[in-house]
Amino acid sequence: MNRRIDITLTVNGERVSRSVDTRLHLIDFLRTELGLTGAHTACEHGVCGACTVRLDGDPVRGCLVMAASLDGSVVETIEGLSDSGEIRDLQEAFVARNAAQCGYCTPGMLVTAADILTQAPNASREEIREHISGNYCRCTGYQAIVDAVEDVLKSRRKSEAA
């Protein structure tokens, strides 16, 4: 079997082609091959959630995805979500609530939180907590993050009703 695999995929709306080492997980691929350093690794065991990115529309643990398996896939990272403006309100809420301190978990947390906005627009505080329960944050104690997500859910509901 090959130890280098040719892949062509879409990252943040741009098509990229690379020949990748099979030892690379998605995050090391993004960071070292594409210079997209917004996603972080922190445990590389799939536990902490710092590496959460969007793959084919769903949040995944980037450290538990082989880069070699990504031919034809669509990957979105915090850089892409920022540029597209899709989660601008969520990012603004994080800033307003100080829901990011050291910021290391933040890109992964935002990708997970963005999932709540589309999958569970009526989520309660408890449901928000449950949904982000796989994303470790050592700084905030989580409350500001829950507040920020709750703020955005409310404002999006309001703007939809209007």
Binding site: H40, T77, Q91, A100, G103, T106, P107, L110
Partner: peptide, 19 residues
């Protein structure tokens, strides 16, 4: 006052040592 350096954190544009 919101932190002026928070925006780079939420946009994944901070510079940690491994970056």
């Amino acid at each position: 006052v919101p932190r002026p350096n928070a925006r780079k954190l939420v946009e994944g544009r901070a510079t940690y040592t491994d970056d």
